[in-house]
Write a protein that binds this DNA or RNA. Structure first.
Lengths: 210, 210
DNA sequence: TATCTTATCGACACTATTGTTTATAAATAC
DNA sequence: GTATTTATAAACAATAGTGTCGATAAGATA
């Protein structure tokens, strides 16, 4: 509004990496605001302050942008979980922070919805699979350790613990995804209030994981 | 191809209820084949053997058809579960058939995907809520009974059992929904093969529900 | 039989979204 | 300073999917 600000804003030329990051962030904002059905490139472009053809230039297609966003999210999520696991001395099962973090990111931030949306559209989500599997391996190792810790004096065979760890991870992941999508609806039907459907349920769930 | 069959098939005029049922069934077929993203009224119309404007006539809009389909599915699912619960003498926790039925309907028939799709589009799914809540109440009662049975000689307070039953139902529902959507993807990442991700996991899950 | 209702159809119109093309300007290299 | 690259933009084209309209015919009612 100032006189000096009246200088017409010229074109901003970003590096590809910067542009992609900017657009992904705008998409993330849009996702949280209106859900995955609002994820159309014109809207995202408006938030990012670019035109929709710029997005197409960097991502190839609208679908590819959504896939990139989902992959980006999964990777950040796993990374985040690993950091929480590494941070706490007592991870499982006394400490519920890891589990809460999973729910927080997937449910509360709308990422489960994005993930579901992307998958329902038949996207492959294969890119970066090696990275993700490596991250999962680390998480798996942490859970195995937690299982043995929870067993106390009892000796747990490696194979048994590893298998159980995979099941636990699968359970947590599917539950968080389902919670993120159908949680509010189910809670209403079943008769759980806000607190019960989130904090109470998550505590109850965490307590009986091991 | 026969000469007699050459009689031009006249218009078939159905009752509204019949027409709706026919269309819903076609939509269900299409859903299982290609997932919710293929649920477009022209495709459904082709399967049902009617034109897409007939669908619009009976359901009002394409979105309303999807909502009707999802509601129809939820109601049939709950009804089905109740029937399984009533049928077996020993329901929970020895018998896993109820749980397996939930996964079967939600995951294997693609209904979790439909449900998620409908919810992600922001549909309300409020119609028939009273009916659904009544069904849920019955299921809840069955689960409470199972909890007490599982406790054996130990006395379980009504309040405690009822609360736990709600959590269990919530857990099963969210898990099945998440499994139906992200199951295959997660299984691949975690390293579970087909059998482990379905039968084995479901058995393991059922065994530790109570 | 005559009349009325409405389920069905076919063709068309509308809109939202994606993708394409051509031009320009901002960095970078020489 | 000149040339090259390419990120950005604006206008245009294409498409898919939904919804509308008028006409027709199958039953229902009298």
């Amino acid at each position: 509004m100032t006189a000096t600000a009246a200088t017409k804003p010229k074109r901003i030329r970003r590096s590809p990496a910067e542009a992609r990051a900017l657009i992904l962030k705008a998409a993330q904002t849009r996702l949280k605001a209106v859900g995955p059905e609002g994820l159309q490139i014109k809207e995202i472009a408006a938030i990012a302050g670019v035109t929709h053809s710029t997005i197409l230039h960097h991502f190839g297609s609208a679908e590819d942008l959504r896939v990139a966003l989902a992959e980006n999210m999964v990777e950040k999520l796993l990374d985040d979980i690993l950091r929480v696991m590494d941070a706490g001395e007592t991870v499982f099962p006394e400490d519920h922070s890891v589990l809460f973090r999973v729910f927080e990111v997937l449910t509360d931030d709308g990422n489960a919805r994005l993930l579901a949306w992307t998958m329902l559209r038949g996207a492959d989500l294969r890119a970066g699979e090696d990275t993700l599997m490596a991250l999962f391996d680390k998480i798996h190792a942490g859970v195995v350790q937690a299982i043995k810790a929870a067993a106390g004096d009892m000796v747990v065979k490696d194979e048994v613990a590893e298998r159980q760890a995979r099941f636990i991870i699968y359970l947590v992941a599917t539950t968080a995804v389902g919670d993120g999508i159908a949680g509010p609806y189910l809670a209403r039907l079943i008769g759980l209030d806000e607190t019960e459907a989130t904090k109470d349920f998550r505590d109850w769930f965490a307590a009986r994981l091991f």
